[in-house]
């Protein structure tokens, strides 16, 4: 080690200069002071007003409506067997759909970015169809293909599998579209470095690629979950109007038709809470995984 000491001395000095204690603040930018300039004040005000008008006030109104009849009214509204069945179906199928999306969406994004094959551009467009299609059209397509008159002999009408199928259809693009740009920006040299250090392809993916993709996968999955929780149009027709295939959004609509606005608002509030819990949970999971590496 003596031979390197001479060079080491100079390197150390430079490190001492460069390596002054960098504040470890993570990704967040620390804004010092509390006074805002005029421009950012106006900007912030506009943003808050806009969010309030479009999101916060309507949401608060729903919650207020739901609890307007007191907590017992709220509790009774959401614990009827029909409400619980609908909620169970909604949450379970949304969870299943999110899990499938996390895997399949990542795989599709990988294929789109890393492989070149004829028809790749076409596939790019196909991915977005579930976004572009009005959901009732999607529902109709599913009904024609997987309904009683199915040309391929698969009748899913009124089954819970049909619900999962419809939700998979409408949530397909979320994970693909969030993971794709991250994958495009990913430097393949890190993977080559891992390979030269002895990592098999699967190990490289798990330990080097996946941690980088995880935030994107998590946010795509969260979006897919939220969308699945509230989906109405695409599941409406294929559910066949039977009770066992009734999701919470349909249940809420029925309550409105029965003039039970409090019950509908209570159902909506529960959907809101579950979505919130899952989204926050995914974010925490993703942060934990990123730290663990």
């Amino acid at each position: 080690m003596t031979a390197a000491d001479g060079a080491g001395a100079s390197l150390r000095t430079r490190d001492a200069l460069e390596g002054h204690p960098t504040p470890v603040t993570g990704r967040r930018r620390v804004v010092t002071g509390s006074r805002l300039g005029a421009t950012s004040g106006i900007g912030l005000g506009t943003a808050v007003l806009w969010l309030s008008l479009l999101v916060l006030i309507p949401l608060a109104a729903v919650v207020a409506k739901a609890t307007g009849g007191g907590w017992s009214g709220f509790w009774n509204a959401i614990t009827t067997p029909a409400a619980l069945d609908a909620l169970r179906l909604t949450v379970l199928s949304s969870l299943a759909v999110s899990a499938i999306n996390a895997v399949m969406g990542t795989l599709i994004a990988w294929v789109l970015v890393r492989d070149s094959f004829p028809g790749r551009r076409l596939l790019e467009v196909v991915i977005d169809i579930p976004f572009a299609l009005p959901t009732i059209v999607a529902g109709l397509v599913l009904l024609i293909l997987y309904g009683p008159t199915s040309p391929i002999g698969v009748d899913l009408l009124g089954t819970q599998r049909a619900i999962v199928f419809a939700l998979l259809f409408v949530t397909l693009p979320f994970v693909v579209r969030t993971v794709q740009p991250v994958l495009i920006g990913l430097d393949t040299e890190a993977e080559e470095a891992a390979a030269s250090l002895g990592a098999a392809p699967l190990t490289t993916f798990r330990r080097i690629v996946l941690p980088v993709l995880l935030p994107a996968i998590a946010s795509g999955t969260a979006l897919a979950f939220a969308r699945a929780m509230g989906e109405y149009g695409s599941v409406l027709l294929i559910s066949g109007g039977v009770n066992r295939a009734r999701v919470s959004s349909m249940y809420a609509f029925q309550q409105i038709q029965n003039y039970d606005y409090t019950g509908a608002a209570a159902t909506a509030t529960i959907l809101l809470l579950v979505s919130l819990v899952v989204i926050v949970g995914l974010d925490l999971l993703q942060r934990w995984a990123a730290r663990r590496g």
Partner: peptide, 10 residues
């Protein structure tokens, strides 16, 4: 590698 190829998350 020229551009270090660091494992950025580690």
């Amino acid at each position: 590698f020229q551009h270090y190829a660091a494992f950025k998350h580690l």
